[in-house]
Design a protein around this nucleic acid. Sequence first.
DNA 1: AATAACATGTAACGCGTTACATGATTAC
DNA 2: GTAATCATGTAACGCGTTACATGTTATT
Lengths: 201, 201
Amino acid sequence: MSLRHALLGLLADEPASGYDLTRRFEKALRRYAWHAQHSQIYPELGRLADDGLVEVVAEGARGRRTYAITDAGRAELRRWLLHPPEVFVVRHEFVLRLFLLSTLDTADARAMLQPIVEESARELTALREAIEKSDATSLADAGLPFGRLAAEYGVRSLETLHGWAVWALERTEPAGNRRAGQASVAAQHASRPDGPATGPT
Amino acid sequence: MSLRHALLGLLADEPASGYDLTRRFEKALRRYAWHAQHSQIYPELGRLADDGLVEVVAEGARGRRTYAITDAGRAELRRWLLHPPEVFVVRHEFVLRLFLLSTLDTADARAMLQPIVEESARELTALREAIEKSDATSLADAGLPFGRLAAEYGVRSLETLHGWAVWALERTEPAGNRRAGQASVAAQHASRPDGPATGPT
DNA sequence: AATAACATGTAACGCGTTACATGATTAC
DNA sequence: GTAATCATGTAACGCGTTACATGTTATT
């Protein structure tokens, strides 16, 4: 039950209301790690409070309730983080689409890859700017929702996606531009022009 | 409904039974893209057949039914691949854990990162070997379940994960080894020692 | 003869999404 | 005053997991 721990993680950073948490899922987690809507978040906050892992620390206008993590909540979050399961269940439609790319012909594959090249470049620029802005404040991690480490992971993942899509487009050139052309058997066998070379350290 | 299209994608490669498909999810998709169990796969195959997107092409021993994709199925798969949604819903517990890393203190964070460094190195080696073996057969993509492009994406993603984890461990050195030590504000501000430098092309 | 692997199916339960529903406060 | 945003809640439905259930074929 990851939602529970995602909420504990967000509250470990700072107290927040259900509404705040909903926006933080939207903004920071949705794209990379996890997603939840308010219809799931509010009831789960209630259960977390029942279990003593969070508590209401303030009530504001419009019925707003600000929750904070308790010591028991921190302990539970820590326990969960230090005991990962042996296999992770992944559900990532974007990556599924990448895998199924091989069922398309050359022209269709290129139509699928081109937007990825562009979109990943845009996102990368945005994330790099957010990091620079945060670094400039000279207060650690200011503005970066999950700290510098997570931001770096995001940047590197986007760079990888971008680099791969560019490489894949090169390998999938339209007929004529390439020695074998089309999705022929030979064309699938070109050497890796700019693939990473070195192994793990 | 991605399961439908994941099944169509697998069947676009070659005909298979529900049992085969279950194993292919397990082996090839589970770790990176999507997961499904036989209890979900069998009923969905039935629905796909009802909708004319797949058909039974052989019946074998032990009630085995081999399904193949139909032309209508291929058309549906193509349509789906060429019309991605604007936002993707991601559900990736491993990445969620990376994001929540920042809630741990230095010692705990290192305890979390170390196994990642090792495990990603192991997986990378295994995948690289599978690719080399496949390349050596000199038949395109032989043995690579989703083709060379997907395999390359896998390699690059693992390299990225490994590189990031090594980098994160370096930044998170135990007290004493590092100018500021612990999870202090200053320690969070080291420059990026081996981070990738260049932007998108 | 026994065990492992092959092969399929379904029921119950829990998680997640969509849609419905309501009201308060702030900014223009 | 009116629209946008803030703020919470729940019901219905669909997707996904776990567990239950059954039988066949190949291997040793």
